[in-house]
Amino acid sequence: METPDPVPGALSLAALAGSPRRVRRERLISRVMFCAALVSVVVSALIIYALFSEAWIFMRDVDWSSTWGELGWFPRRGIYDMPTLLVASLWTTLIAMIVAAPLGMGAAIYLSEYARPTHRAILKPILEILAGIPSVVLGFFALLWLAPNVVAHIGGEGGRGSMLTAGIGVGILTVPLVASISEDAMAAVPKSLREASAGLGARNAVTTLRVVLPAAVSGLVASLIVAVSRALGETMVVFMAGGAADAVIRTYSPYDGSLTMPSAMASLASGTDQVVGEGLTFQSLFFVGLVLFLLTLGLNLIGDRFVTRVREQY
């Protein structure tokens, strides 16, 4: 830990000559601030410890053949087929991105390059409201409105949840996220580039497509990566509208119901903190949590790289 900086300039001597009580007080305050900053580090360490300590028991004792190539995800029977959860996670995330990428980026381009300031001042807060909608609300909406009114018209079942239904719900949830990061990236592109392009006679659309978007590309990629990470971790929408609970046979069709990693965790823990089952059921909760944690951590680190690159560029 550092001692507080001496007061700069000619006054420093006088300040130091002042009361030692003042110096002690300064030191105490800086220590309190440091402790506050340290809380996050402690929290991270606890998360990692909690995940590893239980997941370790799972990894040590589990019959690994039960985690790959079995019928499906049946944690209470000792069958922990990870591909079941991974396939479902992939489908919902993919569908979410098919929804969120065009909507989010389109909205961002419009707000950043086309909208008049007055329109922007109204539209942007509305988009931010969408960002504030809790995921249980989207779960309800996906199950009771999207399924009968949208999914039923694109080959799915209207009366039940499915990976498709949940995926669209998760996609809507991530639209504002994609929009916001993309817009940040485009705003970071210097005005001079746009002016130069316009000066050469390029139309607005050409400037956007040929100048602004290529210049902002790493930010756009970052927005997708962060959105993928968010979609992978989304629990409640899939829990409510994913069309499966507790256990499920492995399926590759997005029209079927299935469990993603977080929704499998919520199902397993639903209503009780004492998960019963054969042997490692409770530990499987933490094992899935660990896999999910590492996946999202990796994606976030990569996404972070891209965001920093945008900042460094201009």
């Binding site: 019928l71 009366g159 039940r160 609970a245 256990a247 499920v248 046979i249 119901g257």
Partner: peptide
Amino acid sequence: RPDYNPSGDDNVILQGITG
């Protein structure tokens, strides 16, 4: 048999049957 669709939520079962 393990290869059926189990669910803790009766609604999900009904949805499956009607689907």
